[in-house]
Simulated assay, not measured.
Amino acid sequence: MAKEETVLQGMIDRLIEIGRCYGMEMNVEKTKLMKISRQPTPATIKIDQKQLENVKCFKYFGSLLTDDGRCSCEIKSRMAMAKAAFSKKKNLFTSKLDLNLRKKLVKCYISSIALYGAEIRTLRAVDQKHSESFEMWCWRRMEKISWTDYVRNEEVLFRVSEQRNILHEIRKWKANWIGRVLRRNCLLKEVIEGKIEGRV
Rank of each mutant, 00 (worst) to 15 (best):
D98G: 10
V160K: 04
I47T: 04
L187Q: 02
D67N: 12
K189D: 13
E162I: 00
L105P: 02
Y116I: 10
K50S: 11
W137F: 08
C21D: 12
W177Y: 15
F93Y: 15
L99E: 04
M1V: 14
G19I: 01
R199G: 05
T41K: 09
A85V: 03
Q128T: 10
N91G: 07
N27S: 15
L188G: 06
R141Q: 13
E29K: 15
I166H: 01
C71P: 00
E25S: 13
R180W: 03
K195Q: 10
L123Y: 14
V156H: 05
I145T: 00
Q49I: 04
E190D: 12
L157C: 01
V160E: 00
I170W: 01
I110A: 08
I166L: 12
E143D: 06
R124A: 10
N165L: 05
R140D: 00
K144C: 06
N54D: 08
I12E: 03
R141W: 09
T94R: 06
K59C: 12
A125M: 10
N100L: 06
S95H: 05
A80D: 13
D48M: 09
Y22E: 05
K46D: 08
I170F: 07
Q49R: 15
E162A: 02
E193S: 05
I16P: 01
R140H: 05
A82S: 07
M24D: 07
R159K: 04
K50M: 14
E53G: 02
